[in-house]
Amino acid sequence: MKKIIIFLLFSSLQFSIFANEDLNDSHQNKELDVTSKIKELKERLDPMKRIGLNLAFQKEIYQLEEVMAKSGDGDVVGNGGGIVEMMFHSAYNNLPYLLEVCIQQENCNISKQEKEILKEMSEVIEININKSDKFAFIDEKYSGFFYEGPSNTPRVARTGFTDEFPIYVNIAQLYNMLDLVNMNYITALIVHEVGHQIGIEDHDFLHHLGLKVAAMARLDFKSHSFDIPGQSNYQLKVTQSEGHLKSDTFIYLKQRKHNFNISEAILSEFSCPKNYRDIQKINITNVRQTSSAIFLKDFISELEIEVHMECFDSLEGMSYSAKKAESFQFVFWNQENNEKLFKFAKRIPSKN
């Protein structure tokens, strides 16, 4: 908790230092860029209000911890071995894949502005995903902590307006409604709370955004990755529904926080025999490097991508299943600091 207080005090000092520099052109442009990305929101919390709300929330946490200490329950902790607690950790771990699908594909039916917000959420989740205290599951006897404002209904979860705070979960309430609790519900709830952590106060907006992301959880998306030899900073990642439908398959190169969508470049190069319609299902089974070279400032890696695909002719009622491999050239810009920046990928024409 000391870390949170230091963060809040630093934020307050930082805001006071820069408050008189709002007329600076670059600062103004940055603020305009941010607001242009969140047109769906009535407003984003201004820095001073955000700091004030965080300090008030911190005070509530101190009061909660004092009550718990007097009861002999010790500090607020984030562990718990019950089924609901396990579902929270599982949903949080699965969120990076769901957010990538929503950001890069059209499945989530979200706007450009909502995509930018999901990108912010993704960064917060990446920061907190390995923290043991990202959740604090609060016992029923302390449920008063979840009554916020004039409402007579306790909230299911609460957090502050910075990722320094855990997500506090009203675990007793969730167990009391266990028949209604599933991964979709918890996914939407976490998206809602992470939205608060990036500075969004609008509950209604976050509720609907959470539902859009949770809808993807119903497709049971899984993700796996392939290392690219000689490219330690890159991984070829594949996210797709359990049924391996081509329409639900997303392929991208991941480099730290950057993702390069190469789905179309790869998937468009695999096709069915002439007598069959388009591919219905496709599954990448192997990736191997066949060669690499440096040409001028480019680092070129040739990869062979092997897939298992299924085609179907609805008119004849015939199906076709086969393994197929295609070779692709991945081109990276070899920068002066030896870091390689991805440029493009293209299929290498067959020599046959």
Rank of each mutant, 00 (worst) to 15 (best):
L315C: 13
E304D: 07
F161N: 03
G317E: 01
A322C: 14
P273F: 07
F342S: 05
I110W: 00
L189S: 07
S314G: 02
F299G: 05
I127C: 13
G72C: 06
F226S: 01
I51P: 00
K274I: 12
E106M: 14
I200G: 01
E21H: 13
Q105M: 02
P154C: 07
Q255Y: 12
K115E: 03
N93Y: 11
K30N: 03
D202K: 01
E242Y: 12
S143K: 14
V169Y: 03
D46Y: 11
I127Y: 15
D204R: 11
Y142Q: 09
F10R: 14
K134Q: 01
V34E: 13
I110K: 03
E302A: 08
F88E: 00
S319T: 05
G52I: 04
K115M: 09
P150D: 08
F270H: 03
S151A: 08
N130W: 09
H224T: 13
N152W: 09
E114P: 02
A91Y: 00
E116R: 08
F161M: 06
M216N: 02
L9E: 15
I198G: 10
D163R: 04
D139N: 11
K222R: 07
S350E: 10
Q289W: 09
K324P: 05
I348S: 00
D73C: 02
D25I: 12
H207S: 09
L245P: 10
K2Q: 14
I51C: 00
I83R: 14
F295D: 12
I125Y: 03
K281L: 06
K42F: 12
L206Q: 06
T290M: 13
I83P: 05
M318P: 04
L118V: 04
I6R: 09
E304N: 10
K112F: 14
N152K: 13
S292C: 01
C108W: 05
M216G: 03
S321N: 10
I200N: 04
L9Q: 11
H308D: 13
F135M: 04
L178C: 09
S111C: 08
N233S: 15
G243P: 08
L98N: 05
K37N: 13
A69W: 10
L9K: 10
F7C: 05
I4G: 01
H244Q: 06
A215F: 08
K246N: 00
K254P: 04
K39V: 11
L180D: 06
S314H: 04
A345I: 06
E326H: 10
N130D: 13
I17R: 12
S90F: 13
F145I: 01
P154L: 01
H208K: 14
E21M: 14
V331K: 06
D227L: 10
Q28M: 07
E66A: 10
K254S: 12
Y276V: 00
E100S: 15
E40V: 07
G144S: 15
V84N: 00
F332N: 00
L99D: 02
A217Y: 11
N54A: 09
A188Q: 03
E269W: 04
S350T: 15
F145R: 05
E264P: 02
M1W: 06
L45C: 03
L8A: 05
L303I: 06
D75Q: 15
A136E: 09
G210C: 08
N170G: 05
F344T: 08
I38R: 11
K39G: 10
S268F: 06
K30H: 10
S291C: 08
I300L: 09
E106I: 12
